[in-house]
């Protein structure tokens, strides 16, 4: 019995991986993400750059042999800043998404599982978070908490869980009527046990693909918050680079090398997450067949 179960699981996993590799979209997404993860975590080891070293070159120097992407308003190497910024953007994106996933899953599963008044209450709160203008909400929260990397993570996390909660609830509703849940209940399993062991494993695949999509939004949010001055001053991120580029007037002197590269990196990274998320969705969610 245990073995057969394991075998089935193994086969499922194999099918998933195969489907993933068949789809071009997921391969492109995966390649982009691998590239940026390497850039963020291996890049700083290979590429010498000190964020505190001002005036390594002239101010806003155009690209040259010494500085492949030119220098910023304080004479720092833009390429080095870009490589170091990748880490911040990735970390914020992933951690914020984790928070959002946990809140969304807990709210969604409890809502669907318990039903009744608990469901009504949780869903009203969820609806409110879906409707509320997310950027002003994030800005208000960030302004109150103060700008640090962790606060940004928390702010993005607690404002972006509503979609996940809706999804988890819908899936829970369809799972909870199935026999194995009934069976577990009849032998006296508790609510928490059933939700964790019986419902979560069935809800999780869908939540996971949704989570990859939330990461894309989280990275965009980090960029926007940083650009609007809510970022961590001590850590270079792509959003902070754009913030400084704008504040220092790089735009009006046409210093393209300062503000175009971070933007292009953001677009690519967000697209990478979006591609991967969509392919996960297509593989894991049979209801979603592309036209």
């Amino acid at each position: 019995m245990e073995n057969a179960k394991k075998l089935a699981l193994h086969r499922k996993r194999k099918q998933f991986v195969e489907a993933l590799f068949r789809s071009k979209m997921s391969l492109v997404g995966l390649a982009i993400l691998v590239f940026f993860v390497l850039l963020a975590f291996v890049g700083p080891l290979l590429y010498d750059y000190d964020h505190q070293e001002y005036g390594a070159g002239e101010m806003l120097e155009p690209p040259s042999k010494a500085f492949l992407l030119g220098t910023d308003d304080l004479g720092r190497d833009v390429l080095g800043e870009l490589i170091h910024g990748a880490k911040t953007s990735l970390i914020v994106g992933v951690l914020a998404t984790l928070i959002s996933m946990v809140i969304g899953t807990v709210v969604g599963i409890s809502s669907g599982y318990f039903g009744g008044r608990i469901d009504a209450f949780l869903m009203r709160v969820t609806d409110a978070f879906l409707v509320l203008p997310w950027l002003p909400l994030m800005l208000v929260l960030a302004a109150l908490l103060g700008s640090s990397l962790w606060n940004i993570v928390v702010v993005i996390g607690v404002t972006s869980w509503a979609g996940t909660a809706r999804l988890a609830r819908a899936q829970t509703l369809s799972v909870k009527e199935r026999q194995f849940v009934e069976r577990a209940r009849s032998i006296g399993a508790g609510h928490v046990y059933i939700m964790r062991k019986k419902i979560l494993p069935n809800v999780f695949p869908l939540i996971f693909s949704n989570t990859v999509l939330v990461s894309a939004v989280a990275i965009l949010s980090e960029t926007t918050l940083s650009f609007l001055g809510m970022g961590d001053v001590l850590r270079p991120s792509w959003g902070m680079m754009l913030h400084y580029a704008f504040e220092a007037g790089a735009v009006s002197v046409g210093a393209y090398w300062f503000f175009v590269p971070p933007g292009v990196c953001i677009i690519l990274l967000v697209l990478g997450f979006a591609f991967l998320g969509h392919s996960f969705d297509e593989i894991l969610n049979p209801a979603l067949r592309r036209r």
Binding site: L220, T223, F227, F246, F259, G263, I266
Partner: peptide
């Protein structure tokens, strides 16, 4: 995938 403010800047 594009930050709005970035498009504005460009």
């Amino acid at each position: 995938a594009m930050p709005t403010f970035w498009l504005g800047i460009v």
